[in-house]
Computed example of a mutant assay.
Amino acid sequence: MTTAIAVGSRTGQSLVTDAEFDMLAAFCADEYGLERCVADRVVDQALAMVFVMGSSGAGAAMAPSQQVDPGWHTLILHTGWYADWCERSFGYFLHHQPNSKVRTRGLMVDVVDRIRSAGFEVDERLWGTAADCNPPACCGDGPCC
C-alpha cells in the first residue's frame, strides 16, 4: 500500500514545535514591525523555503521574496537553534548566501513551484505571484490584511 501526499498539504510551521514557531514568529513580528498574524505567515513560508533549499540542495538557485526575507533572517538570527534545526532536518548547516538583487517574478515563480512540489502550502501573496500583488505583506484580500 502506498500513501500519496497531496501537493500543498503541509506547512512550514509543521517542521518545528509549537514553542519554536511561537518564539520565531514573536521575534519576527517585534524585530520587523509586523502584525503577529502576518509574521506567522512570513515565518511559515520561510521555514518551508529553507527546508526545500536544504533538503534538495538547490539553495544557491533559490531566494526569498522581499516579504519572506524577514522570516529567513529570523531563522538565521537564532543561530544555535538554526544550526541544530539544519542538522536535524538535512544533516548539514545551510549557510545564508544573500542574492536579493536577483529577485525577479520568474525566480519567485520558480521558488514557489519548488516549495509547492515539495508538498508545502504556498501563500502566493507573500511571493508576489498572486496577480499583480506585492505590497509589504499582503494584498488586502485575505486574513490579517
Rank of each mutant, 00 (worst) to 15 (best):
T3I: 14
T3S: 06
A6L: 14
V7E: 13
S9W: 11
R10C: 02
T11P: 00
G12A: 10
Q13P: 00
Q13A: 12
L15D: 04
L15R: 02
T17N: 06
T17S: 15
D18G: 12
A19L: 12
E20G: 00
F21H: 07
F21G: 03
D22W: 10
M23K: 08
A25P: 00
F27W: 15
F27R: 13
D30M: 07
Y32L: 01
Y32M: 03
E35Q: 13
C37T: 06
C37D: 14
C37R: 08
A39L: 07
D40V: 09
R41K: 15
V42F: 05
V43H: 07
Q45C: 05
L47M: 12
A48Q: 12
M49K: 05
V50Q: 07
V50P: 00
V52T: 10
M53N: 05
G54H: 08
S55I: 00
S56N: 07
G57K: 13
A58L: 15
G59I: 14
G59P: 07
G59K: 10
M62H: 08
M62G: 03
M62V: 08
A63T: 11
A63D: 06
S65E: 05
H73N: 09
T74M: 02
T74C: 09
L75H: 01
I76W: 01
G80H: 08
W81E: 07
Y82N: 08
D84E: 15
E87K: 12
F90W: 09
F90H: 15
F90E: 03
F93N: 02
L94S: 01
H95S: 03
H95Y: 02
H95G: 03
Q97A: 03
K101N: 08
R103Q: 13
T104V: 00
M108E: 05
D110N: 12
D110S: 13
D110T: 10
V111E: 07
R114K: 15
R116M: 04
S117V: 03
S117D: 15
A118C: 12
F120H: 13
E121Y: 09
D123P: 01
E124F: 08
R125W: 06
L126T: 06
L126F: 08
T129F: 01
A130M: 11
C138I: 00
C139K: 14
G140A: 06
D141G: 11
D141P: 00
G142K: 05
C145A: 15
C145P: 06
